[in-house]
Design a binder for these strands. Structure first.
Lengths: 253, 253
DNA sequence: CGGTCTATTGACTGGGGTCAACCAGGGTGG
DNA sequence: CCACCCTGGTTGACCCCAGTCAATAGACCG
């Protein structure tokens, strides 16, 4: 069913027109006729299944990839073979911009679930920029926002405790879901505990224990990968490291 | 003396022509006449002293800053007031690109020593791009390389031990110095132990102990901020987490 | 039902953080 | 020229958060 939908999506004449991601995608800010031109240039390969790669570290970079549906994780690999997940990517996100400078991909992008990707070749993008100059700024815009997100991650990995990291992660995920029209209170995690742990610089046991603790404190409800945020204010307080003040407030009341 | 030199630099008609950083700066790949045009648009304010800010997190973004001489650290600040240093910037590096997306700076850039900065307003840059389209790609290029560097940092903070982090840091610094024509073997650190520790997600005591240990193992020679790399191969092995194999090799021999 | 994969839980350990004392340069002023 | 302090760095003793190891429990699927 999903696959069929996706095939149909691939055969549409102008899949970008009416795509729910158009507000976040490279097409943001384009007129309908510009979006139509853009759409004609994009390729829509058959959907990837869980574990399949969009591209791999070291491959040559010749096109951008945009997530249309599903979810993708990206990770870098160290010389001794360890992975570090650097991001999870939702519909509308643009992948592979790291390759612009060096001409080759510097991280691997892998589907976490059945995922449809839209591709735009670098060459077509260049052509297109000549006709719609604002598109060039759009790409800088996207790239700089991705950089800001990574800087936030540096702060998390460098300075935050494990509970702060998980709280931040869930809040980010929640607002990312909300921005895509899904519930901000109930999150269906597309990634495993292992992926979360790796992303946050922790091990799976620590993440598991934190989920249990947050649940017992009434902050979350946890059922496998379905996470409910029961007390957003307290989750925010944990993320901001105000949890002690919060608990004190609680104790007094 | 330094200040006088810098003032003179600021009064030059075409400071970019003949600037030693021209190979790394935005001007890379421009012809002499293009560089001259570029040069006319740049501002060269009087040099900053140690501790002075190039720009601060939250300020509106309206110009790029390029390091001409000296050294700059950049850091983000968390809601509870903690800093995380996200990079050190040497001559030729471009600062403030994070502001493109949001229109405001998302990190603070602060001089570590007396530092000269070249400024180019966003408006002038846009004008200039219309005349020299390749410059637009140049900026994407720089931005994507900065992103790749940050991804490497994520790997360090997420997965590496303290000794791996310091070894990586010193090797990176060494090659950065070498790329700027300075010695790769003897490094004069522009930043304090505290800055190094913060950057690497450690505390000052740990960094101090590591320096002492590396010296006693014959990998480094340490005299305050003058660091000599005595055994680059072993430093690389530590960074790659091959140190045990290495020591075993050593023990057998 | 057995097999496998993912997640949870418990007991224990250790790398790196914390706290505190001390040291070494390098101004500064008498 | 020395006495003083002050900042930045080093060293030691101790501790704790999160990692490691290992056993168990569920979900999912043939």
């Amino acid at each position: 069913m999903l696959a069929k939908n996706s095939e149909r999506f691939g055969q549409l004449k102008n899949p970008c027109l009416g795509c729910p991601s158009t507000r976040y995608c490279l097409t943001r800010g384009l007129s309908d006729s510009e979006t139509e031109q853009f759409s004609r240039k994009t390729r829509h390969p058959s959907p990837l299944h869980k574990g399949e790669k969009v591209f791999m570290m070291g491959e040559s970079f010749d096109s951008f990839a945009m997530v249309h549906s599903g979810c993708v994780k990206s990770y870098v690999t160290s010389r001794d073979g360890e992975h570090q997940i650097i991001g999870f990517h939702m519909p509308g996100d643009i992948l592979g911009l790291d390759g612009i400078g060096s001409g080759e991909h510097r991280y691997t992008a892998e589907a976490l679930e059945t995922t449809s990707i839209c591709e735009l070749s670098l060459r077509d993008y260049e052509d297109f920029c000549n006709r719609v100059p604002s598109l060039q700024w759009r790409l800088l815009d996207v790239l700089s926002r991705q950089m800001v997100d990574e800087q936030k991650m540096l702060l998390m990995l460098g300075k935050m405790t494990s509970e702060q990291r998980l709280a931040c992660f869930l809040l980010d995920l929640s607002s990312s879901m909300a921005a895509r029209g899904m519930s901000a209170q109930i999150i269906s995690l597309p990634m495993s505990r292992n992926d979360i742990a790796n992303y946050l610089g922790l091990v799976i046991e620590t993440v598991s224990r934190l989920f249990t603790r947050f649940q017992s404190e009434g902050v979350l409800t946890v059922q496998r990968r379905i996470i409910g945020i029961s007390d957003r204010a307290r989750l925010q307080a944990i993320a901001d490291n105000n949890s002690e003040d919060y608990r004190e407030l609680d104790r007094v009341a």
